[in-house]
Write a protein that binds this DNA or RNA. Structure first.
Length: 798
DNA sequence: GAACTTGCTGAATTG
DNA sequence: CAGCAAGTTC
């Protein structure tokens, strides 16, 4: 095939070695997607494999879509009898379950409902309430997250309960909630996101006939982003490859950033054990980035210990140096980005830029800055279309029409728009439903029938609601039998439920916007009708399974997104913002070295998104919880080769200081290691950071580079210095004191510097509580953020 | 029963 | 500074 000529040797091998298990270790920018799509095309066009016996699995719809497009393009002109199945893990599972779930014999039917996270949290909340637990002690979200991660580890309610230790009240409570939650899911004929995988795997494990069906169907299997697979996804692939081993997995362990979601990096590291005859191909030539960008990424990732040694190289030129900017605050950081984008556009008006941040909360300032500068942008993440309340409401009506036992959907819409069904009535429904042990929908039938326990007013309101739903069910079933468009049913759900009327009566701009969103939903349904004909059920499934990442628009010139969302993408111009200690690496990862390594991989991912220009930025202060907090530069900055970075800051900056003191590096590091803290008090008070902080950075660095020095300090290397020797610290004028609770009685106010016996000099970020229980959040350069009890921490002024 | 007010607590990353 | 829950008023 002629298109093979455009591939390098390794890529070609990865495409043409079609049989047997194969692991493709594809470094960033090494043409991974290319290899997968060419491989699929090759199988079909050259090997004559029937397209429908090929399965390719991705994590996002967007990736699947792109793959489909590229394969189609490669095969254009060829007549193919069927299409390969290119799907996300989740939709693959839905497909399997819609076909076979009844074989599990757990009470689920093929018309099950999918609960997204929001639904799932609501259900958890109801369980907490019904078990009489205090929902203040057990955060609904936290409980849901615990249940979710248990499921992803492969545990069910029973095994979770079995692991609860005696006396651990909280976990015991969660175990009981877990059990009730599962029970309710079955009663509602609903599966949450995790269940989609759990149940599909159970099905394949337990029912040999089902396993056979898929083993016979899929002869060639490809898995994208294999480093992000978790135990369930691994099991799924194992079962699907039981008979044949034509499995091709592609991934990069340096880009594994979903550990927190259960991703197990050992899936990729141990692939050769799992599939003993596996062939391994490494794609190490990077076609994306300049040498300088690649060198920086490489320098950072080298600080990780958990990795296979692999060196990415490129034939690309060194390119420009990376650019660094120290902003005063988050707003000026955003303004700087906007200004730079405009500057680059003067050179190249079509240049594509990405702004990458650690948390979605950071996006707002950038949105504002872009709007003010008149720069159109696309934002990925945050509130997606299907997460808007009005859209979810209509979807809930539709879900209810398909599955009236879905109590979560029912409760969502029973009084939306308001139709006179208040707390009293709802409580009554809840109580009776529990008494009778039936669903809310059935309870409503009983209540409207006997009318007992409710006043006539409520009864008639309830009858009204009942009629609305039965009518909608009628429309739905008629539509299904006559193959009429899905969009008609969606329209009915908006109009016949009184939803649009209620919005129109509001006469506000907000209501207007909501109506427009509903119009969008109708449009989506019309689009759907044009493309597929799998009915309302499938349309709803789509709505449940679209992800934030799917919002990425390829031709947008400016994209704002999290670093996670950026995986797999590339841009000529990239801004990595908020490189601050506690933000990136995130403070929650500070305690666990494995999590810190994951943050570092995330940093690696972010850097390697850039093709030509890469900006690294941090702000000196930013608002967190509406409170102004000072921040120190990220340790990742310090792990980069500083000579590859150009400083664009006006005036003194952390970088200029770090550079100019590079001759001090060894001296300071040695001194710090020796434990002589007394000398290290020179502090200009004007520049952002002090020599001390820099020395701490270098100390950490020399430890890591040296290898022999202990990584964590078990014994204090720095003795407590004499209290009198240090002058009181010049408090940073920019940082205000905490607005909540803190009393300016002590000396350790936010913004001041302290010295800790073990971590050395640090900056107080936050102060909570009073008296003996004063807790401080302190940022120690090189060690990250620590939470300390003032009384015991042995702090002193610095 | 619904609309409005206050007061509190809590955000990392996602299919 | 949010968003949400409980409390208050019409």
């Amino acid at each position: 095939m002629d298109f093979l000529s455009s591939l390098n040797k390794e890529q070609r091998e990865a495409v043409t070695e079609t049989d047997g298990p194969i692991l493709i270790l594809a470094g960033a920018g090494s043409g991974k997607t290319r290899v997968i799509t060419y491989r699929i095309a090759y199988l079909i066009a050259e090997k004559g494999v029937a397209p429908h016996s090929i399965l390719a699995v991705t994590f996002t719809n967007k990736a699947a879509e792109e793959m489909r497009e590229r394969v189609t393009r490669l095969l254009s002109g060829q007549r193919i009898p069927s299409a390969p199945l290119i799907s996300t893990f989740h939709s693959l599972c839905v497909r399997i379950l819609r076909q076979h779930i009844e074989a599990l014999k757990e009470g689920y039917t093929r018309s099950f409902t999918i609960y997204d996270q929001d639904d799932s949290v609501r259900l958890v909340k109801a369980c907490i309430k019904d078990l009489g637990y205090d929902d203040k002690q057990l955060g609904q979200r936290a409980v849901q997250a615990t249940i979710s991660s248990a499921k992803n580890r492969g545990e069910d309610a029973e095994t979770y309960a079995a692991r609860v230790e005696y006396g651990d009240e909280k976990r015991a409570a969660i175990a009981r909630i877990f059990r009730l939650y599962e029970e309710r899911l079955v009663n509602n004929n609903a599966l949450d996101f995790d269940d989609l995988l759990v149940k599909a795997v159970q099905l394949l494990r337990r029912v040999a006939e089902v396993r056979d069906v898929y083993n016979n169907r899929f002869r060639y299997i490809l898995v994208d982003e294999y480093q992000d697979t978790n135990a369930l996804q691994f099991a799924l692939i194992r079962f699907l490859t039981e008979k044949q081993q034509n499995v091709c997995v592609v991934g990069d362990e340096n880009q594994s950033i979903y550990r927190w979601r259960g991703a197990d990096i050992s899936n990729i590291l141990n692939f050769e054990q799992h599939y003993p005859n596996a062939r391994v191909i490494r794609l190490e030539q990077n076609y994306r980035s300049t040498q300088n960008i690649l060198d920086t990424a490489d320098a950072v990732i080298k600080f990780n210990t958990e990795r296979k040694d692999k060196r990415l190289w490129t034939a690309n030129p060194a390119g420009e140096r990376l650019r660094y900017y120290q902003a005063f605050d988050a707003e000026s950081e955003a303004r700087f980005v906007a200004a730079k984008i405009e500057e680059h556009r003067r050179e190249d008006p079509k240049i594509k830029a990405a702004v990458l941040y650690r948390t979605n909360a950071q996006s707002r300032v950038f949105e504002e800055a872009m709007r003010r500068a008149g720069i159109p942008y696309n934002i990925v993440g945050g509130f997606s279309f299907y997460e808007r309340a009005e859209v979810r409401d209509i979807i809930s009506y539709l879900k209810l029409a398909l599955n009236a036992h879905d109590s979560i959907a029912l409760m969502r819409v029973i009084n939306t728009p308001p139709r006179g069904l208040g707390k009293q009535t709802l409580d009554e429904i809840e109580r009776r439903a529990k008494d009778y042990g039936v669903s809310y929908w059935e309870t409503i039938a009983i209540l409207t029938d006997d009318g007992k326990g409710l006043n006539p007013r409520a009864t008639s309101a309830l009858k009204n609601f009942q009629k609305i739903i039965t009518d909608l069910v009628k429309v739905t079933t008629e539509s299904a039998s006559s193959d009429s468009p899905v969009s008609d049913v969606v329209k009915a759900a908006i109009l016949d439920t009184g939803y649009s009327t209620a919005l129109k009566n509001e006469n506000s701009e907000e209501a207007e916007a909501r109506l427009e969103n509903l119009q969008e939903l109708v449009n989506a349904a019309v689009d759907y009708d044009k493309q597929e004909q799998d009915g309302l059920r499938d349309f709803i499934d789509h709505a449940a399974l679209v992800s934030d990442q799917d919002q990425y628009k390829r031709d947008a010139l400016v994209t704002l997104m999290t670093m996670h969302a950026a995986k797999g993408l590339e841009f000529p111009l990239v801004f990595i913002v908020g490189l601050e200690d506690g933000l990136f690496p995130h403070s929650r990862s500070a305690t666990d070295p494995a999590e810190l390594e994951e943050e570092r991989r995330l940093c690696y991912v972010a850097i390697t998104r850039a093709e030509r220009f890469l900006y690294l930025m941090h702000a000196m202060k930013r608002r967190v919880y509406g409170e102004e907090m000072a921040s120190e530069p990220s340790q990742f900055l310090n792990e980069m080769p500083l000579d590859l970075i150009e400083d664009l800051t006006r005036g003194p900056s952390w970088l200029s200081f770090a550079r100019s003191s590079s001759t001090l590096e060894n001296k300071d590091a040695v001194r710090a290691l020796r434990g002589d803290a007394r000398e290290r008090t020179k502090y200009s008070g004007k520049t952002y950071d002090s020599a001390d902080s820099i020395a701490e950075f270098f100390r950490k660095r020399s430890q890591q580079l040296g290898g022999s020095a202990p990584k964590t300090q078990n014994e204090p290397t720095i003795r407590r210095a004499e209290q009198s020797s240090t002058a009181s610290s010049p408090t940073r004028s920019s940082s205000s004191t905490s607005s909540r609770g803190a009393q300016p009685s002590g000396d350790f106010l936010p913004g001041s510097h302290v010295r800790h016996p073990k971590y050395g000099r640090g900056l107080v970020l936050r102060r909570e509580g009073t008296g003996d229980s004063v807790k401080l959040t302190v940022s120690f350069p090189g060690f990250g953020q620590k939470k300390l009890i003032e009384k015991y921490a042995g702090l002193e002024k610095a």
